[in-house]
Nucleic acid binder design. Structure first.
Length: 855
RNA sequence: GCCGGGGUGGCGGAAUUGGUAGACGCGCCGGAUUCAAAAUCCGGUUUCUUCGGAAGUGCGAGUUCGAUUCUCGCCCUCGGCACCA
């Protein structure tokens, strides 16, 4: 065999062999245990970035490991092909989005293949293909029929210069990204899906997902935001008009001293007609930031409307305010305010001199004063008329019952989650299959797909569809919808379509019921809420349509961390920063290895070392995977990304680390080549092993056991690799030319090769053949632990005195505690520390340590 | 402001159930090889030290024979957030 490791030639050969033998084609086989491993599909933006490489390597390692465990593995790949970047590229280059997207797909597919991922490419799909999107049009039509999709007016960002709707990310500081014009809010008719109908189930079923990270579950729970409370009406004084409010603290109802409405509330707008000051205030509220962080920290402001409302229980009049912290979009746009028991209300009352009334008192007599801040604990009611003496919990029910009995309110469960607006006033997306007739009546189309015209010019002034009567004008006053779906629509069900990508007569078929749910889903944490929530919702919609049987689409979820890298910059005269790519910078270190100086290779002059940040165009710190693959081969790139950090952590890019990974592969190659030169190997005689040989075999089998746990259960690929590195270090140190010695070397090398094969599949497959195997490594059985190799006659224990390490002793495996104690105490160094002291206690932890406690 | 992660050598990280802190890799130092360099190989590498040891996992307490691990308080940092009544 060649003494020299040449990744590019072996990787080409191995990949060709996989392709020729259709090695990763997945076929349904009910007699075998299936394993569906899915990595989130990429948006075809042009070329792969490091985040993709990391994501897909993780998925590939899991897939290949499961395959070697004997499972029937399916790992597909496809393209999230609709979206805004294609339109932006079209504006810049004039290339139609379809063409741009398809050429990107072609290039990126070649990159994925070059990395050697074990995909079943026969299942490839692109969401911009009519054969794909026709089925979501079909499903949408079903949802319209069922009343789960409906049309209502909603607000969008409107660029008055470009005459187009803008996505949130196209609005920068309130201005259009291209025109710079001040963005306006416009109300237009849009389609919504009733995800709120599924809010409770989406919440409850989170409990069925123990294989999801806790923080994703928490984020989803918070997003759904279930709360139990009470709705009730406050009547306007001297009027028939009522204001509905929602509260989660009805127990504090008797402490209400004012009611506040949102700036956009009808009552507030009405009052503004005769109050110019109020008009100004409402305008001011519109301008303020709307993020949660801004809201929580901003000054609480309001204005009295000069009206009173009647307390539903006491009949007292309390003032009505408009306040900047009340949101029109949530609940009823009005709140009851209890300054005594809500900190925000307390601050508002303090500012405007409104009465604070205490109605909850501590049960145990501890301080519950509301002089300095609101009292937020539960307690006993007082100053609450008929409800005095009840505790908070009992009062919740008693007050709710009272309101219901008197027709003034009722219990209600609220969700933060709102219905999903799916209309986008965009071109490059799936057409919404709706036709509006001359009477303004919307109906679904009956033939699918509604094809998106692809031969168009995108100039940035609105969707081309709106300028194509041949698309929308159907005659007789019938008009086709020109909006397209939110691209989350496509990504909400692609995982199911992979099971049967060629199903021509239905959205899904029996094959989906074989493969689903996805056993392992891998993707970025940035999708923790929206994509994963929508996909879960779609799964339930498809289930209720009889298309799938499972309640949840993804049994296990792994969220990989970001890829980050050092940044380098120079500050220009005008204070702006120019960023330099790490590849163009040389870093000098001091004797300890601390970076002290960085220079630009081009001019040799110094550059500033910035922080370590997420790889991004804006900081020019991205590392192009292609260059690394060309230089080191796919295996090295795969090995480094899996070795540098556990999958959930951020991964800090290091060129030196890549070198190290490459060095390891070279050593493995060399060690194998050297061993193979020693010729034929006799069979191992297990009962004639020397102590050193036993030790080495123990290391081999302990490594198998460790790697099984690390890859199969913990997904800590970095420690699995470290374990094999340890084994290979031990093998290279063993200089043993005896028959048994060479047999153990063979065993150790073959084991290392198979254990590493999910991670670095090309070099291992090549070596596997060099070791005389005719079947490819992907079809080899996973190494099995030889339990007899793990048996030890003696083991090492550590000896502590008062918890401090003082000696290491070797004892027989079957020694009893008394013998162990004696050996420990008689140790010379231990004696030094216990000499003239009294032994108070000896703790023996079997197989681990002895701790001698002395006074 | 709220919610959720983190904090261990010069660096990335390891220590899985409370039991040898720093595995493995990088970097750095020394040596071998070389005309020389690259590559490769061998050895060393937490800090302090009177060379016996001592200290040490963000800071301060606590529980324990024993704490990176558990509890309480604080500091820093990263991520998420839709004014959530």
């Amino acid at each position: 065999m060649d003494q020299h490791y040449d990744p590019s030639s072996i990787e080409t050969d191995v990949q060709k062999n996989w392709e020729d033998t259709q090695a990763f084609k997945a076929t349904e086989d009910p007699s075998r245990e299936k394993f569906y491993c899915l990595s989130m599909f990429p948006y075809p933006s042009g070329k792969l970035h490091m985040g993709h490489v990391r994501n897909y390597t993780i998925g590939d390692v899991i897939s290949r490991y499961q395959r070697m465990q004997g499972k029937n593995v399916m790992q597909p790949m496809g393209w999230d092909a609709f979206g805004l970047p294609a339109e932006n590229a079209a504006i810049k280059s004039g290339m139609p989005p379809a063409e741009w997207t398809r050429s990107n797909i072609e290039y990126m597919k070649a990159q994925l293949q070059r990395l050697g991922f074990a995909y079943d490419w026969d299942r490839e799909l692109a969401t911009c293909d009519p054969d794909y999107y026709k089925w979501e049009q079909w499903l949408f039509a079903r949802l319209v029929d069922k009343g789960l999709a409906y049309r209502k007016t909603a607000t969008v960002n409107w660029d008055p210069v470009d005459q187009t709707v803008l996505a949130n990310e196209q609005v920068i500081d309130g201005k259009g990204w291209r025109s710079g014009a001040i963005v306006e809010k416009r109300n237009i008719e849009q389609w919504f899906l009733r995800i709120t109908d599924y809010a409770q189930e989406l919440l409850d079923d989170l409990d069925k997902l123990p294989g999801w990270p806790e923080r994703v579950l928490t984020q989803q729970r918070n997003w759904i935001g279930r709360s139990e409370g009470v709705t009730m009406d406050f009547q306007l004084e001297n009027s028939e008009e009522k204001i509905g409010i929602y509260t989660t603290h009805p127990d504090t109802l008797m402490g209400v001293t004012y009611v506040a409405v949102a700036a956009e509330h009808p009552l507030s707008l009405q009052a503004a007609e005769s109050n110019p000051e109020l008009v100004d205030f409402i305008e001011e509220c519109k301008k303020g930031g709307v993020t949660e962080a801004e809201m929580e920290t901003m000054e609480k402001k309001g204005m009295a409307l000069g009206l009173n409302v009647i307390h539903p229980v006491s009949g007292e009049a309390v003032p009505l305010y408009v306040a900047n912290f009340v949101l029109m979009g949530y609940g009823t746009g009005a709140v009851m305010a209890v300054p005594g028991h809500d900190q925000r209300d307390w601050e508002f009352a303090e500012k405007y001199g409104i009465e604070r009334k205490q109605v909850i008192f501590s049960a145990d007599g501890s301080d519950c004063s509301i002089e300095k801040e609101a009292y937020l604990e539960k307690g006993i009611l007082s100053n609450s008329g008929p409800f005095d003496g009840l505790d908070s919990e009992a009062a919740f029910n008693a007050i709710a019952d009272w309101l219901k009995k008197h027709g003034k309110g009722d219990k209600q469960i609220n969700f933060r989650l709102r219905d999903w607006g799916v209309s986008r006033q965009r071109y490059w997306g799936c057409p919404i299959p709706i036709i509006t007739d001359a009477n303004g009546e919307a109906k679904t189309v009956s033939e699918f797909p509604v094809r998106l015209p692809e031969d168009v010019i995108v100039d940035g002034s609105g969707s081309p569809l709106k300028k194509m009567p041949e698309f929308y004008d159907l005659g007789n006053g019938q008009v086709r919808e020109t909006d397209t779906f939110d691209t989350f629509f496509e990504s909400s069900w692609y995982y199911a379509r992979y099971c049967c990508p060629d199903a021509a007569d239905s959205m899904l078929d029996d094959r989906a019921r074989y493969w689903l749910p996805v056993d392992q889903y891998i993707g970025g944490i940035e999708h923790a809420i929206l994509h994963l929530l929508y996909a879960r919702f779609f799964n339930k919609l498809m289930r209720d349509e009889g298309l799938v049987e499972n309640d949840e689409p993804f049994s296990k979820l792994l969220t990989q961390g970001m890829v980050i890298a050092e940044t380098y910059y120079r500050t220009n005269d005008d204070g702006s920063k120019e960023w330099f790519n790490p590849a163009d910078v040389t870093v000098e270190h001091d004797d300890k290895g601390t970076a002290i100086r960085a220079t630009l290779q081009a001019d040799g002059q110094e550059v500033s070392i910035g922080g370590i940040e997420k790889m991004a165009k804006s900081k020019n710190n991205g590392v192009d995977p292609q260059g690394l693959i060309d230089r080191y081969g796919a295996d090295t790139v795969r090995l480094y990304t899996m070795f540098a950090a556990p999958p959930e952590h951020t991964l800090e890019w290091s060129d030196a680390g890549v070198e190290g990974a490459h060095r390891f592969l070279k050593r493995l190659w060399k060690l194998s080549a050297t061993h193979l030169q020693t010729g034929n190997i006799a069979e191992l005689k297990k009962d004639e092993l020397t102590e050193a040989q036993q030790k080495l075999r123990l290391k081999i089998h302990a490594t198998i056991s460790k790697v099984n746990d690390d890859i199969g259960r913990r997904y800590t690929f970095n420690t699995a690799i470290a374990a094999v590195m340890e084994l290979s270090n031990a093998l290279s140190q063993a200089k043993d030319d005896s028959d048994n010695g060479r047999a153990i070397m063979r065993e150790g090398l073959e084991t290392s090769i198979l254990l590493l094969s999910p991670i670095v599949p090309h070099i291992t497959d090549t070596l596997w053949h060099e070791f005389g195997h005719t079947e490819p490594a992907i079809n080899a059985a996973w190494p099995v632990v030889d339990e007899t190799a793990l048996v030890q006659n003696e083991l090492q224990l550590i000896v502590q005195v008062n918890g401090k390490l003082r000696a290491k002793i070797t004892v027989a495996t079957d020694a009893d505690n008394k013998q162990i104690e004696e050996t420990a105490i008689s140790d010379q160094n231990v004696q030094k520390f216990i000499a003239d002291k009294e032994i108070r206690k000896v703790i023996v932890v079997p197989g681990r340590l002895v701790n001698i406690v002395v006074s």
